[in-house]
């Protein structure tokens, strides 16, 4: 039996009828068409489904949609304002931290959450912040560099 929930996604309020077993990831991708959030495994191992729930990074494949009743969700589509890239997005682009791009939305959100919490992370803290996000293409070095670069521009503001 479907249940009705309210969900604010990227600042927009949605009223949604969801299956009890539907995950937040299912609802974002299948019901709201927000396909920027990726599913690499569906079982909490890869981080590609990372979104911000009430500002905190979560694996949307492990969160039931019903548990999110009344909450605010930010997906990759909700980050850039007026088509301008955020410092994290820009740094990923400039530093070659993107290859196939499948891990990128999750990485960008994890990095954004990290920098919001800790604007001057050490390298060890960056690694810790990204440890739940797999990337097969880049070997992480350029991603870590990008986060450092983004931190600089965060802190200049």
């Amino acid at each position: 039996m479907k249940r009705l929930i309210e969900l604010t996604v990227n600042g927009e309020l949605h009223e949604l009828a969801v299956e009890p077993q539907a995950t937040l990831l299912d609802v974002l991708r299948e019901q709201l068409g927000l396909t920027g959030t990726k599913e690499g495994c569906g079982t909490g191992e890869c981080g590609s489904c990372t979104v911000l729930l009430a500002g905190r990074p979560v694996l949307s494949c492990l969160v039931l949609a019903m548990e999110c009743q009344g909450q605010e969700v930010t997906t990759i589509e909700g980050l850039s304002v007026d088509g301008r890239l955020t410092p994290v997005q820009q740094a990923f682009q400039d530093r070659g931290a993107v290859q196939c791009g499948f891990c990128t939305p999750g990485m960008v959100l994890a990095a954004t959450a990290l920098l919001t919490e800790n604007p001057r992370p050490s390298e060890a803290e960056i690694k810790k912040g990204l440890e739940g996000n797999l990337c097969r293409c880049t070997g992480y070095n350029k991603i870590i560099e990008a986060v450092k670069l983004a931190a600089e521009s965060f802190n200049q503001k």
């Binding site: 959030t37 990759i76 890239l85 997005q89 990923f92 682009q93 993107v98 791009g101």
Partner: peptide, 8 residues
């Protein structure tokens, strides 16, 4: 393709 990929 970077901008497309970093914005989802």
């Amino acid at each position: 393709d970077g901008p497309e990929k970093v914005t989802g």
